[in-house]
Simulated assay, not measured.
Amino acid sequence: MSEFIDLGELGAEFRRNPHPVYARLRAKGPVHRVRPPAWESETWLVVGHEEARTALADPRLAKDGAKIGTPALDEELVGKTLLSTDPPQHTRLRGLLSRSFTMRRVEELLPRIQQITDDLLDTMLPLGRADLVESFALPLPLTVICELLGAPEMSRAEFRRMATESIAPSSPAAAHDAFAGLGAYFTELIADKRAAGPTDDLLSDLVHSSAEDGAPISPDELRGMAFILLIAGYESTVNLISSGVHALLTHPGQLAALRADMTLIDSAVEEMLRYEGPIENATFRYASEPVEIGGVRIAKHEPVMICLAAADRDADRYPDPERFDIRRDSRGHLAFGHGIHFCLGAPLARVEARTAIRALLERAHDLALDGPPGDWLPGTLIRGMRSLPVRW
């Protein structure tokens, strides 16, 4: 039986730890009517694992809100992205990105990722204590994605501010300004790439390529692709590293097991993704026709939010799901989504997380928390903390 709940009324405790609320909803059924924080309207929320997996791949749940008159803010100010398109447009855009953002390209980045990791630790470790987010988890993926895109060094501080406000805004006005700023930033960067001629960065590849049918990629599409690469290649990794380290430090037995056997690092990262993944809820979908999910009928044009955090703690899929266990078989988790919208940046996020966490544990032998983590990011899209004080 579905239940209505106003998530915005639950306050700071829900933001800090939403899992008990999701567990209570899941116990009553896989689909519920909710009002997200800072939203005036209601949406359907899918919290069961099997139902979420099915919904993520259901073509009747459209991503393009413009079809029902509700275009997303990013679409208006940045351009169409993979998160706001359906086939055939989505197929075309993803094909263009996949052609440049290959697994081979990610693997070629490994030495550079290791070098950036080592340089950050060289700077941080002599201090004896630090905010892990500010000093390590954030600058690593930010440097990697800026280099991958070919973004100038001097722009990175502003780049970071706009990126964070675009996915975890402090206010509607801040979100609008961030998207407008990113749109202008990428417009200028794309113009510079076009004028400079082909170089070896990913954005230059896209600027100087064309679709399989020979049609040029529009400026609107290029801005949208640059934006989605930023989000896919940066924000998820920041929170995967910081939340993953936090999980280890609050589960000393698991930390000791990983220190004793670093061959468990791949399994540990997958459990971090399942236990406290960087994406709490997938972006909105809209029923293009009446749809039934988990026995609940959803009318045409109604919005649907799929809760990845709730699905990955479903006891029907993972026994004792509240237990953090790096030896668990976490395969099948939905931290990066499922279906045609599976996160394009997942391979890069995994490589960076494995490299960063392994190097940190190998070099900071007495790593421990140095106080409580900072506030968790606002909203229900991104799951991550603003700061994580640590010492060693």
Rank of each mutant, 00 (worst) to 15 (best):
Glu3Gly: 09
Glu3Pro: 03
Leu7Lys: 05
Arg15Phe: 12
Pro20Ser: 09
Lys28Glu: 15
Val31Leu: 07
Glu42Thr: 15
Trp44Ser: 06
His49Val: 00
Ala57Pro: 07
Leu61Asn: 00
Gly65Lys: 06
Gly65Asn: 08
Ile68Gly: 12
Ala72Met: 14
Lys80Val: 15
Thr91Trp: 09
Arg94His: 06
Leu97Trp: 08
Ser100Lys: 13
Phe101Gln: 08
Leu109Gly: 09
Leu120Gln: 02
Leu120Glu: 04
Thr123Pro: 04
Met124Ser: 07
Leu125Arg: 05
Ser135Pro: 08
Pro139Trp: 02
Thr143Ile: 13
Val144Gly: 09
Ile145Tyr: 05
Glu147Asn: 09
Met154Ile: 14
Ala157Glu: 15
Met162Ser: 08
Met162Asn: 12
Ala163Phe: 05
Thr164Asp: 15
Ala175Phe: 05
Ala180Thr: 08
Leu182Tyr: 04
Ala184His: 10
Phe186Ile: 08
Ala191Trp: 10
Ala196Asn: 12
Ala196Val: 04
Thr199Ser: 15
Asp213Pro: 00
Gly214Asp: 06
Ala215Trp: 10
Pro216Glu: 10
Glu221His: 03
Ala232Gly: 14
Gly233Glu: 07
Val238Ser: 01
Gly244Leu: 09
Val245His: 01
His246Met: 14
Leu248Gln: 02
Leu249Ile: 07
Thr250Leu: 04
Leu255Gly: 01
Ala256Ile: 10
Leu258Val: 01
Ala260Lys: 00
Met262Ser: 08
Leu264Lys: 07
Ser267Val: 08
Ala268Phe: 03
Leu273Met: 11
Gly277Asn: 06
Pro290Arg: 08
Glu292Ile: 11
Ile293Gly: 09
Val296Arg: 05
Ile298Val: 05
Met305Tyr: 12
Leu308His: 05
Pro319Ser: 08
Pro321Ile: 05
Asp325Gly: 08
Ile326Glu: 03
Arg327Glu: 15
Gly345Glu: 13
Pro347Ile: 13
Ala349Thr: 00
Ala359Thr: 06
Arg363Gln: 10
Pro372Met: 14
Arg391Leu: 10
